[in-house]
Computed example of a mutant assay.
Amino acid sequence: MSWLDTLNTLGVQVDESGNCQVSAAVTNASATITPLTHLGLFDVTGPDAEKFLQGQLSCDVQKVRAGKSLLGSHCNIKGAMVSLSRILPVENGFWLRTERPVLDTAMANLKKYMIFSKAESHDLSDEIIGLGFCGEQAATLLSAQGFSIPAETGECSAGHEGVLIRVPDDRFELWLPEQQAEPLLKTLLTTGSLTGTDNWKLAEIRSGLPSLQRDTLETFIPQMTNLQIFDGVSFSKGCYTGQEVVTRLQHRGKLNRPMYRLAFTATKAPAAGTVINTPDRAGVGTVVSAAMDSDSSGELLAVMLKTSFDDDGAILTLDDNDQPLVRLNLPYELDPELFERPQRL
């Protein structure tokens, strides 16, 4: 039985984009389990895997090798992100987790530079299964199945032939082989409850975590998505593709468009890449990710022109939706110096 067949027997329906919906209502919100069908995973392995990724990704891959999972972007020479992945350490290399619709593109872009390295890459999305855990009892649920619970955000542990990562807001991502995932999920559901993709995406948005989709590839420099907050950009490790532009923005430039969190009113979440406008100016923002919170409202992350919020009475709206957006707080503060152009001597 395939993984999708297993999910179907549990009342989970997966659409063409990989998003899943659960027919049964959540009964235990203190421990929820989300099949991460909207995400995929590929590997980079071989003797040169670490050296290769260190020269391509924005994060410090040496920290990943030491046991810490980080977000990392692959940029073009102009510093714009062509992919964004969570990097996991595994034997003989790394797993890179990214949005399933752009996985092929992410892997292909890295492979273009891999030809002169002793490294190789394969799509593992049909072999390695992802589960997301939220709620007060999530750690207890996993511990009962023999997992060692990572103490700090970004730390990893091994178990059931897979990798468990603690991610922001005391949530967990678990990636493990399909043959391990099926019996484990059925055991977990004796205590935890299944939820759909929107539940996980909403938690990611509330944690202020960015993602990339087809319509936002090569659109944002890493700092525009607040990636530096999560140690997703290293300013000390040395050269990588696009590094000069990224570093110049950090130390000599001025960030005009950071990422914000907003609430929207609609019956469907806006797609990544949807434009945000004011009455006086079109294109002041671009949706990064969005998820529904109820039948008629949800939350989103958007890269926004910072001056859009200078006027407390400014009205922000999505294209084709005249309902005003409402700014919400992020769980972190951005360095104010990013918004000030350094004085030239």
Rank of each mutant, 00 (worst) to 15 (best):
E127W: 14
F172N: 04
N109W: 05
I129W: 12
P101D: 04
L142H: 00
K118E: 12
L103Y: 06
I149F: 07
S143G: 15
D104T: 10
D169C: 12
F147K: 00
C156F: 01
V102T: 07
E136R: 15
K112Q: 12
V163M: 13
K118Y: 10
A151T: 10
V163C: 14
S143E: 11
L110A: 03
I128H: 11
V102C: 06
G132R: 13
A108V: 00
F147A: 06
C134K: 15
Q145C: 01
E161T: 08
T105Y: 14
S125K: 13
F116I: 09
D169T: 12
E161I: 09
Y113H: 02
K118C: 09
Q137R: 07
M107F: 09
I129V: 15
L131E: 08
Y113K: 00
F172K: 02
A139Y: 01
M114V: 06
A139M: 03
I115T: 07
G159R: 04
M107C: 13
T140E: 15
Q145A: 04
E152S: 13
P168W: 06
V163N: 07
G162W: 05
A151R: 09
E161V: 09
P101M: 01
G146C: 02
A106Q: 07
I129E: 13
P168D: 07
E136H: 14
L103V: 10
T105P: 06
G154A: 02
E127R: 14
D170K: 00
G162P: 09
R166T: 01
G162E: 02
Q137D: 13
I165C: 09
S157W: 02
R100D: 10
V163E: 07
P101H: 04
A106I: 11
S157F: 05
G159P: 03
I165L: 09
A139W: 05
K111T: 05
F147E: 02
S121F: 09
T153I: 10
E155N: 07
A119W: 00
G162L: 06
L141C: 01
L141I: 05
E120Y: 13
D104W: 08
F172E: 00
G132D: 12
S121Q: 10
L142M: 00
Y113F: 10
L124I: 14
P101S: 00
G159D: 05
L164D: 04
F116W: 07
R171C: 14
S157R: 02
I128V: 15
T105M: 13
D123C: 10
D104L: 11
I115V: 09
G146V: 01
E127P: 13
E120I: 10
R166W: 00
D126F: 13
D104R: 07
S148R: 08
R166E: 02
D126E: 15
R166V: 02
F133C: 06
L110K: 00
L124V: 13
N109T: 10
K111R: 11
K111Q: 11
L164G: 03
M107K: 13
K112P: 04
R166A: 06
P168E: 00
R171N: 12
F133A: 08
S121H: 09
V163A: 11
P101C: 03
G159Q: 02
F147C: 06
H160D: 04
F133V: 07
